[in-house]
Simulated assay, not measured.
Amino acid sequence: MKKLAALTAFALISLNVSAQEAEVATIELKPHASNPLGYDKTDLTVKAGQKVKLTLNNTGSVAPQPHNFILVKPGKDQAVGAQANAMMTDPQAMAKSYVPDASKDDILANTKLVMPNGTETIEFTAPAEAGDYPYMCTFPGHWLLMKGVMHVTK
């Protein structure tokens, strides 16, 4: 009887882990094929608290250039973008992947700077609170056009 209970408990744990793994939102984001200063997707939807596996695949653009992905808190895109612009005078900006230090509290997830024909995959947990979370590329001048919204739903 103890063996059966142990097997049942193991099966339930396995099912729970499998269900959680199935809940991972897998997203691939690329530069837009004909607009090098745009993402191919400008609207993403995930569930609150969901695990997200995002790959920035920097291929296929008509004008290859470096890009990154930065997810920010609602209403913080202008501030983070302005701070990214200010990094143009920072000699360490490339090493920092154009991710502003001053905005660390406003940045929820980010990739490094991905060079043309490169990729980077990051994993993070979507915010627990439903809402519209802006994302952008903060390579100099890109954030004004290369942006989108991650819709976090309950």
Rank of each mutant, 00 (worst) to 15 (best):
G148P: 08
G49F: 05
G81F: 10
T42F: 09
E23L: 11
T111F: 05
T8K: 10
P74F: 07
K2P: 05
A84R: 07
L44F: 04
T119M: 04
M115Q: 12
K53L: 13
M94R: 14
K147I: 06
S97C: 10
L4W: 13
Q50A: 15
H151T: 08
A48S: 13
K76Y: 09
M146R: 05
D40G: 15
A86N: 12
A95Y: 04
L44R: 04
I13E: 10
D132C: 03
M1A: 13
A102L: 12
T89Y: 11
M87K: 09
L113Y: 02
D90Q: 10
P66A: 04
N57H: 12
A128C: 00
H142C: 12
M94S: 11
K154D: 15
S103Q: 10
M115K: 12
G141W: 02
G75Y: 05
D106T: 06
G118C: 09
M88S: 11
Y98E: 02
A84G: 03
G49T: 07
E23N: 15
D106H: 05
E120P: 01
M150Q: 05
T125F: 07
T26Y: 07
E123W: 08
A9I: 11
Q50P: 02
K76V: 04
A102P: 00
D40K: 06
K104M: 07
P36H: 09
L29I: 08
L145V: 06
D101H: 09
I122L: 08
K112G: 02
A130N: 11
M136T: 08
T125S: 08
D132A: 15
A109P: 01
E120R: 05
K76H: 13
M88A: 15
T26V: 12
G38P: 00
Q65D: 14
E123D: 11
N68I: 11
L44T: 00
F124P: 03
T42H: 13
E123K: 06
A25I: 01
K41E: 15
Y133K: 00
A84V: 01
A86W: 03
L71F: 03
A86M: 06
L44A: 01
K96M: 14
A86K: 08
